[in-house]
Design a protein around this nucleic acid. Structure first.
Lengths: 105, 105
DNA sequence: TCCACGTTTCCAATAATATAGAAATATATT
DNA sequence: AATATATTTCTATATTATTGGAAACGTGGA
């Protein structure tokens, strides 16, 4: 992962509505949720939600597929893992005891 | 971790200079680096670096201690781990096979 | 005390981002 | 074909972040 991509992903997550959307999708699993369901659950108006989903999708953190009139969004776990790996890369100067072990999801 | 704290931490990392600073400190280990050394390694002018270090410190991602005229910064691994845990919390709808295992640092 | 060095604060110009109503687009139903 | 539903695009406004020079502050050494 390159720094520009990491910054884009982090910027996508660094906003309250988008972070809530992303976590909701992370917890939902790969089957995902329709945009409207996300908006209803989080109380975000359509235009605003669409703006935020676009940011998350551009950053690669979510993917979407169309099913009839619905657009279903799901978390991209691979990209999430890449971002985490980028943050923790070569950490602790090689001494793993310095940083706590990362929990598996 | 609460969402406001997570957003603050992510916003702190969502900027190229700050992300570079944080990763440098993560890789350096708990002994840390003086502000001036960081600035020299990354080519960031003093005023700008101070601004960015403050953002990282306010978010809890780095800590500092004063040694004589130097201010030594080091990564806060505990806070980094909390942020990662917040992102991945209850992920994959309980089916761990959906998301790749997180590497230990 | 006086000077050098490291860091932070102040400041002002510039740039980027968030919000949501209204209109547009696309699919489904009758 | 006409209507309802789901989502996105357009648009304008408001808010917040980034940059770095100059000055200020603190510490250490001569």
């Amino acid at each position: 992962m390159k720094i520009k991509a990491a910054v884009e992903a982090l910027a996508a997550l660094a906003q309250e509505s988008r972070l809530a959307v992303f976590r909701l999708l992370v917890q939902t699993g790969k089957e995902g949720l329709a945009a409207g369901v996300v908006g209803k659950k989080l109380g975000i108006p359509p235009a605003t939600l669409s703006f935020h989903l676009k940011a998350l999708a551009n950053a690669g953190l979510v993917k979407s597929r169309t099913e009839g009139r619905f657009v279903i969004y799901n978390a991209n776990y691979a990209e999430m893992d890449k971002l985490i790996a980028y943050l923790t890369e070569h950490c602790c100067a090689g001494d793993n005891a310095q940083c706590a072990p990362l929990k598996k999801c």
